[in-house]
Every structure is written in C-alpha cells, then in structure tokens.
Design a protein around this nucleic acid. Structure first.
Lengths: 348, 348
DNA sequence: TCCCGAAGTTCGATTTAAATG
DNA sequence: GCATTTAAATCGAACTTCGGG
C-alpha cells in the first residue's frame, strides 16, 4: 500500500508538505504551484489513497452514517433505503446498513458495532416492529444524532419522520365513499402499532363527515406479530371471518397493502370478485401493488422522500453536533397520496 | 471516550499489559490470574471499547466485507441479502452494503469507497445488470477476494454462485407439459442477459424429450433494459403481441416472475383467465409471488442459500489470503425448485 | 518580516525488545 | 535465568511549531 511518505519520497518533499497540498489545507496558500503540481503528479502516478483508519484516528469524523433496518425483506423498506442512499451519495457519506431481522439481540449487537465504528449519525427504520423502551434508552444515551423513520417517540432527543397516518386514513375512506360505497368493512392494524389508531381516526372522520356509519361488526383488527409479511395471512383470515358474518359489504379498507392482498385472496377464493363485487384499498403503495392483477388502489407513502427527509434532518444535527451545539429533535409528518388503480370501482 | 490508557491507569498496570490481557495475546500466558481479573474488571467498570480505527491502523484486518448490489429495489435482492447477513452475523464480520442503482458511476464510486475501507472481501450481487468488462477488470486488479452472485465470469479469479438455469428452464417446461399443455408460449429473457439462454436451452430439452414442439411464433424475447422492474412492462407488451398473433396457446412460460405478472395482467385484460384459460409459470419465486391472486407457480431460486454460499466461499478465500495463499475461484451452481401454486392448471 | 518547507507531535492500540526484582 | 511487567517503536495521516533564507 502506498503511503503519504512514498509520495513524499517520490516528489522530493516532506510528508507534511504532501499532506498540506493534497488536502488543500490553509497553509497550502504559501506553497508555490510548481511544488503543488509535482506533488499531485507523484500522488497520481503512485495511485496514492489516504488511509481512512489513520485519518479517522487522528481526526474525528469518518463520514459514516449507520442505518438500522428492522427487516430488509419488508417491501416497505427498500424505497426508503433508496431515498437514504440517494441523499447520502451526494454528500460523500457512506451508509452502513444493518438488518436487525426483528430480533432484539441483533439490534443490540449491530447497534454496538455501529457505535464502535463511531458513526456520526444513525437512522432507524422502524417498520412494523414494536420497538421497546429499553432499546430507545440505549439510543438516547449514546449521544449520536438519530433520526427515526416510521415511528414517533415520546423523547424529544430523537427526530422522526412519519407519514400523516390520519390524513391517509381519511383519504382512503373518502375515496371509497366517493365511489358510492356505504357498507364498508375495515381491517385495522395491530393495536400495539403506532400507525393503527391515527389511520382509524382518519377513517372515522371521513365517514362521519360524509354521513356514513361504519358497522362495528365489519371492523376487525390485525393481531400483533413480529413478522412484517404476516399482514397477508391476517388479511386472509380476517376477510374470511368477515364473509362468515354474512353482513354485506361492497368495499374493504385494509390496514396496508399486504393486508389488502390477503383480503383479495380470500374474497376471490369465496367467489367475490375484486373490484366487481367488492372494492379493496390498501395503504403504503409498495412496489408490487402496481404489478398485481387487479392493480391495487392504495394510499402512497412518500417513501423515498421520507428517506431523504431523514437524511437532511440528520445531516443538520451532525453539523450542529460538530460545533458542539445541541439540536432540537425535529418531527416531520409527510403527506400521503391517493393512488387510484383497478381494485376499487364505482358502485353504480 | 475511554482509552486503553484509562484502563491502565485505573487498574494500575501499563497499557501494554492491558492490551495483552484483553486480547488474550500469547504473552498472556505469563500473566497471573490476579492481574487479569483486575484489568478485566477495570475495563468493564469504565466501559472500555477499543478504538477500531487505531486497531485497524496497526493490524491488517478490519472485519468488514463489502456488498455491492445493483439495485436494492429488485425483489430478487433482499432474500439474498438476508442470507448474506445471516451468515456474516455468525462470524462477526460486518457487511458494508452499497447500492449501485444500476449506474456505472455509482458502481465505481462505491467500489472505491469500499476499497478505501480495506474491506477484506467483496460480494457482488449482479442482478439483472449487464456488467461490462471494464468493471470486472477493476475488480480483478484490486486483489480483494471477490464472489459474484447471479452471474458467472470468464475469469477464474472471481468466484461465482448461480442457480442452475438450465435445470430451472427444464423444470418449468416439464411442469406445464405434465399438466397436458402442448401449445406453449415462451417469453425468453433479454439476449444480453446470461440467464436467458441456459433457461431456454432447458425448456427446449424438456419439450424435445416430451415430444412437444415449441412454435417459434409463440416465442418472444424481453428487450434489454437497465431497470429490473421493466420485466413487468415487457411481460404486458409481449403477451399482448402474442394474443394479437391469434395462435392459440394454453400455457405461458415466462422468463421471470415479473414478466409473469405482466403476462397475467395482459391476459386478464383481454379476458383470458389465469389459470382457467391459460396457465402461467414464472421464475425466481420473489416474495410477492406467493401473495398475488392467483398465487404464482414458479421456479424457486434458493436465494438465501445463494447468499450463504457466497459468504462461505468468500470467507474461505479471505482465510487463504491472510496466509498469503492464492485461492482458486469456485463456481457453484445451485439447484432450483418447482413451486406449484395457483397460476397453472391441468388441461383436463 | 515574509515565505516555504521540514521536523516533530498526536490519535489509540499492538507488539517487540528490554527491564525489574 | 525466570516470571512479570513495561517502555518504546509502529501504523498513516494531520496539524502545530519551528527554522532557514
């Protein structure tokens, strides 16, 4: 490996001068162009690459940001990761991605690994998992600027980026009502999940202001689970339960897209065609929602945007932290968007 | 931050002794247990964590493996990543994941970043992209042990892990033929993609040995594209083209699952029901294939297994490299598996 | 005094060679 | 010479300080 001393030897100057020139440090003002070019050429010819470890050891920052995902197999994750990576790419920060796999032990181990690497910031992608208090305490203590996507914390030390779930719930319900539906089934999210109740609140608001009554007998909850893909199975089971109840419904508002897929599976299996006999709407707009047949009408979370927002909040906090200033936690809510496809249909 | 000197001071020994004890170095044999425990207790009490940069600077290895993905949004990626992470987790190696986003410039930039960090090994997940020669030359030169998933190289310096495409093509064709289908349409992969021709070869073998003739008029190619999700659009367009040709077919073998989804979309749109009027089979078994309705019959690539295989090949090579021994490139082919679901149906 | 460049120190951990009783 | 322990050199880059012209 070629070091700064090799460049010094090759160019005929000392390693200090080489360092000053190559980093364009303040002192470089005094160094004549002839020296500079000779050094630069020598560096290029030798293929000199500064040793990151030496640099990070001496200085403080290593231009790394830790990203902790709870389950990389969750389709909700990847667009957000894309957003994070795109934003970081501009800034020459490197994301160090770890996947906790919904296991507490892995979360802790990876968190340790990230802190050991002295990452300058941390982004936590709290999809689905029911993050518990202890983990958060760990996060708070370490003092590394942290942004959380998909979940808001009571603490005001950790910033957060979420979709406006209440608006999303409202949009979904308004959409099916605007299509003329009045008998509307709802599959709500797990009670323990933060997204569930605001979405439900939004739906109730929309129903109320449209004068539609939501039948409690047509409202079910997805049970708690650690597996993000379990929403599908829950959708199947709960929809079959709804069908068994023999209360007619012409539309179904699902907690998320996976639940909606499960609902569609159950409906079709029981001879109820989507959207002819029953409209179905999801939430998230994961990639596959556009690819299934019928394509799923859904509420889109601006996932790439959420990733980008988390990065910009984080970079801000990192900059402040470098000046030893505290940054107040930012809590950003992003507006979702109704995406109309083929799984919902006007009643008339 | 607490350093080794702090531990030395607190325990009353020198930093050398502390280092020897905490790392259980050879010299630790001569150190009496009483000293050891005192040092260990001091370290624990202070919460000492060795500085990775200092350690990596002095030593050689940093226990990092670079993982380059061409498109993290490709559903084909995530199960493989899961496999990689699971295997690495056991070994205390940390994967540094980068997403080239199918852009040459990003690939090069991230590759540089990874080499700058002196990663001990490299896994390249060559999904879909048409890797070109120059990039490979770069890889060869750097001397870092490298394993490639999803593509085999002419070079014998870079190991590879792939699915046995020929077997997969055979399985797919054998399946539809076993269901009694004789008029079989095929959407082949892009000519420039390495997977395409062996799959096609396998299909031809299966057809031939079953005495079924594949009509060239019912065989189309997906055009080249950088976007892994474009397979869907291609599936739609090509299937519509097939329907326009007015040659009856009762089964369609698609290049991959996304193409199959596109085909299903086009078929249903034209009133051809799957699987009642036409069976469709895909390839890959990405997560969503089980969730769509009808659930997709497909050929499963053992994706987690492929990730794990790449890791074990890589670790082997890393170990050899540490002893300054060369390792011959390993080329591993993994057997796919037929997964029968609801998109294929017996003719009778 | 002003340039220009070099020498030397620092970061934290590891390891060699040496010192102590 | 033995068992224990440690001072000092090392890794590579960055930065402070110092000296010569």
């Amino acid at each position: 490996m070629v070091t700064i001393r090799d460049v010094a030897k090759a160019s005929g100057f000392s390693s200090s001068t080489v360092s000053i020139v190559l980093n364009d440090a303040p002192l470089a003002r005094y160094i004549p162009p002839s020296t500079k070019t000779r050094i630069q050429q020598a560096a290029k010819k030798l293929g000199y690459r500064p040793n990151l470890f030496a640099r990070s050891l001496r200085g403080k920052s290593n231009r790394e940001v830790g990203v902790m995902v709870f389950d990389i197999a969750d389709p909700f994750c990847t667009p957000i990761l894309r957003g994070i990576q795109n934003s970081l790419f501009e800034t020459s920060y490197l994301p160090i991605l770890t996947d906790a796999h919904n296991e507490r032990s892995r979360f802790l181990r990876y968190l340790e690994m990230l802190l050991d690497r002295r990452v300058e910031g941390l982004i936590i992608l709290a999809n689905w998992l029911f993050v518990d208090i202890d983990l958060l305490a760990d996060l708070e203590r370490n003092g590394v600027p942290t942004a959380m996507i998909g979940r808001e914390l009571e603490t005001d030390k950790i910033s957060s980026v979420l979709v406006d779930n209440e608006a999303g719930g409202r949009f979904a319900m308004e959409h099916v009502i605007s299509l003329g539906h009045k008998k509307i089934a709802v599959i709500r999210g797990p009670k323990t999940l933060g997204d569930s109740s605001p979405r439900w609140r939004g739906m109730q608001q929309a129903a109320k202001s449209a004068g539609v009554t939501l039948d409690p007998k047509l409202t079910l909850d997805v049970p708690e689970s650690r597996n993000p893909l379990s929403g599908f199975d829950a959708g199947v089971v709960l929809t079959e339960e709804l069908l068994r109840r023999r209360r007619a419904f012409t539309a179904l508002v699902a907690f998320d897209d996976l639940t909606a897929f499960g609902a569609i599976r159950a409906l079709e299996k029981n001879g109820v065609h989507v959207p002819t006999d029953c409209s179905v709407i999801g939430f998230d707009d994961i990639a596959q929602s556009a690819l299934c047949t019928p394509a799923l009408t859904t509420i889109r979370q601006p996932m790439q945007g959420m990733g980008a927002a988390a990065v910009s909040i984080l970079l801000e906090a990192i900059n402040l932290a470098q000046d030893n200033r505290r940054s107040a936690a930012v809590h950003q809510k992003m507006m979702p968007e109704l995406i109309v496809r083929d799984s919902t249909k006007s009643l008339r």
